[in-house]
Every structure is written in structure tokens, then in C-alpha cells.
Design a protein around this nucleic acid. Structure first.
Lengths: 230, 230
DNA sequence: GTAATACTATGATAATTATCAGCTTTTAAG
DNA sequence: CTTAAAAGCTGATAATTATCATAGTATTAC
């Protein structure tokens, strides 16, 4: 079986592409190009015009936006099965976010036309994309509330739990996705030093353990309570 | 002309309902019910299962979410032409937000079935809804960045400019939409006292003028600069 | 292997923001 | 109309968070 064909790609099960017909999938597969992106390399930049979407086969990308004060706010982490750039392609606007790989990635680039055609011809596909976007919007609302109402300490606890739930742990009990301290700070929207200080504090309190930049969760229950304000 | 019919409703031009066919519009119009909602009254509550969507004909509603610490975070203000609750109906989930009128409102309730049928049968409509949601998602990203990276002072300045741009001013040079100090605080995610203090400061600096709870913008340029961090 | 560079860490201090308390003004109910 | 309740306001203080400075520790390039 040729795994480089979308028809055989497992990743597809997780995103809206699963609503495509066999015919359509073949077209997607014929028009797509596969890229590998090294950790730290950009996929696209804020303000760039996207000529297609990126489907993540492996690895993780951060989607971020530069704020007026020069800091990068990470809005979302996209991993296996997620499609990046669809918002811009659908609304026919330039991207409002930058995408940079936080681990080595393998992605498929699907040209805009292929997507647009299916959006116009296959209502099931459109509906599926719509459902996914509705879900993303709900998550965005939750992030807004967390950012506005929780303290930095709570947000960092929340972030660690999120990383564990979404990316899992490696064999040694560390979070499978290792982010730099700066990236952690940019996820929760705080100064790098503040994030580091709080990580040290969590370590002292026995909530987490660290080894270099790797972080492992030691007491999930207490972290949860902290994130919820108890 | 019977303005109570969707076919003749101007409001429709502003939202995704404009993509409906004449036939569909008639069905919508026949199945809808019109409600008036007094300022302060709820349209629906967080966690409630919505059996349809609300199309705003007049007035403004706040969409908010209760945070763990008991504060209400206002995520969006919906006014004439906007459709509320579509996210929940599309994703078939309970509402993640509460809607409460911040001014007297007139809204049309359109049952879920009517919407679902059109979503399945009319790809243009689905695509139009999708475009709107893509836009909402972009705005949500912007809010996340503002909430995470800007100071309370900047966020309040931003909020006043937003209110002016989206709801305009009355004849006396005050913002057409009057929010309580508490609502303003809940929009920017701060304590009511902090919001009041900053409003007083803006007044002293000649950026705004007030009369009771009404607020007018005096120096838009300086407010803009402040919001952008200069 | 070593120098340069980026990342992590911690202290000191300043700025921002929340909280609590008390008071005044406005609004709404009877 | 008047009285209770709600909303607005201000001060004092505490807690949180940012900033600046400095140093140790990894990483990477040559």
C-alpha cells in the first residue's frame, strides 16, 4: 500500500478530509506535495498569502501572532491530523498567524484550488470543515476566558496538563512535547523569566520534575486543583 | 411590505442567511418566532441546549462565560444582523456561552431543524456560514493576543475604540452603546474597581468625557496610541 | 575542543493589578 | 416621594507580574 497517497493516509481520519469522496481524495493526492520541516523552521508567516493548506502528518507546529510589544503569542499548537491555514484559505484573507515547527515535521501541502473545488461541490465536506471550525471557535473562547481570568501560575499549570493530555509522555515520564521556556511563556502570555520562576516553584513543591528543558508531571491532581484556583 | 417576513428583513443582508434561496427563506420565515427581550434579561444560559439560533434585529447582547473565580468574561457583543448560537447548533453541543441583553432587543428565533436542513441541502449557505465563522475565529485570535499581551489600560482604550467603531455615537457625542462599569471590566477581564480607576484617569487626561455612566471619546488619536502601546 | 551563542536561572526592584473598606451617587420599588 | 438597593468612586494596602541585571549551563559552529 502506498502510504504517500491520501487515500491510505491514517492522519486523514482525524480531520475534515475524511468527508471527501474517493474521487476527490485522488485529486487531493495528485495535487499535494509533501515537505519535511526541521524544528525551528517556518511553514508560513503572518501576513503571507496562503496558496493552500498544510495537513500535518507528523510533528508539531506552533501558530503564533506577533503583538505590538514585540512578543509572540502562541495561539495554538497543531499536531498530527490537524489542518493549518484553512481559515485564511476559506476567508480568502492573508494569514493572521505564523506557523513554525516546534519539532521535526512532515506535512502535506494541498493547493487552494483543490480545497475550493471540494468546498463548492461537496456539501458534506463543507459541513465537516464547518464543524471543525465551530469546535476551534469554542476552544478559542475558552482560551480567552483563561487568559483573562486566570493568574500566570494557573495558566502554566493548565498548559502542562494540556501538553500531557494532547501530546502524552515519553518512556521516562516526561512530556512528549518539549517546549523551550520561552515558548511556554509565549503560550501563557507572560515574560520568560516569570515562567521560569513559576516552573522552579512547581518543581520545589513537587508538582513537576525536570531534566534540562524536559518537564514531567509528578502530581497531576494538585496541578489540576491549582489550575482551577483551589 | 411585511417587514416581519425574513424575505423583507434588511438585517439578513449582514449575515449568512443572505445565501438562502427564496424558498428556504420562506421556510425560515414560517418557522421563526419573534421575541422582544428587555435589557438585562437572558436569551440563553451557558450549558443550555439550544434548539435554534437567534438572529438579532435590534439591540445588543453580551455573550459571556463564567470563569472558575466567579467572574463573567464577556467574549463578544452581538448586534443587529448577527446570529447567535450557530456554533452550538452546528457542533451539536450545549452552549458554551450565556447571552444577556445589554439593551432592549428584538430577536428572531429560528429552529434548529430549519437551519440544519439548509446546511445539508444548500452548499452556498454552508460556505457562507463557514466564511463567517472563519472571520469570527480570526477575531477570537486577535482577542487572545490582546488579552495576553496588553495591559488593562491598553485593553480599556481598545474597548472604547471598538465601541465607537461598532456601535457609533449618539447625538451628544457619547458612545451609542452604554455599558455598566462592571460590563466594561468584564469585557477587558479586570476588576470593576480597576476599570473605574482607569476610566477616571482617562477623563483627567482628557481622552474621554463622561456623564453618569455614559462615556464619550474626546481624543481618539491619543486613545489609539495608548492602545497600541505608545 | 573551544569559542560563540542561545537558553536557563535567580535576585533586586519597579510597575501593574487585585482586594478590602468606606463613602457617594444613581436607580428602582413600593 | 422616599427609601432600599445597586452602581459608581476613591484610598490604602497587598499580591502579582514585569523588567533589568547578572551568572551559570547547554548547544552549536568552526
Amino acid at each position: 500500500m502506498d502510504r504517500s497517497r491520501c487515500e491510505n493516509c491514517i492522519v486523514r481520519q482525524f480531520n475534515s478530509l475524511r468527508a471527501l469522496s474517493k474521487e476527490e481524495l485522488k485529486k487531493v493526492s495528485d495535487s499535494k506535495t509533501t515537505k519535511t520541516v526541521k524544528k525551528g523552521q517556518p511553514l508560513f508567516e503572518e501576513g503571507e498569502k496562503l496558496n493552500g493548506v498544510y495537513c500535518v502528518r507528523d510533528g508539531v507546529s506552533k501558530l503564533s501572532k506577533l503583538s505590538a510589544n514585540g512578543k509572540d503569542q502562541i495561539v495554538k499548537l497543531a499536531s498530527k491530523g490537524e489542518v493549518m491555514g484553512q481559515r485564511s484559505v476559506i476567508a480568502e484573507e492573508h494569514s493572521n498567524l505564523s506557523a513554525v515547527a516546534v519539532s521535526d515535521m512532515e506535512v502535506c501541502f494541498i493547493p487552494k484550488d483543490t480545497i475550493s473545488t471540494s468546498l463548492q461541490k461537496n456539501p458534506n465536506f463543507t459541513l465537516e470543515v464547518l464543524r471543525h471550525m465551530a469546535h476551534d471557535l469554542k476552544e478559542a473562547d475558552d482560551v480567552i476566558v483563561n487568559m483573562s481570568q486566570k493568574t500566570v501560575k494557573q495558566r502554566i499549570a493548565e498548559a502542562f496538563l494540556y501538553l500531557k493530555n494532547n501530546f502524552g509522555e515519553d518512556g521516562d515520564g516526561f512530556l512528549a512535547l518539549t517546549l523551550s521556556r520561552e515558548d511556554i511563556a509565549n503560550v501563557v502570555g507572560t515574560a520568560t523569566e516569570s515562567a521560569i520562576r513559576i516552573i522552579s516553584e512547581f518543581k520545589k513543591k513537587g508538582l513537576i520534575h525536570t531534566s534540562g528543558k524536559r518537564i514531567g508531571i509528578k502530581d497531576e491532581r494538585k496541578l489540576r486543583d491549582l489550575a482551577d484556583g483551589f
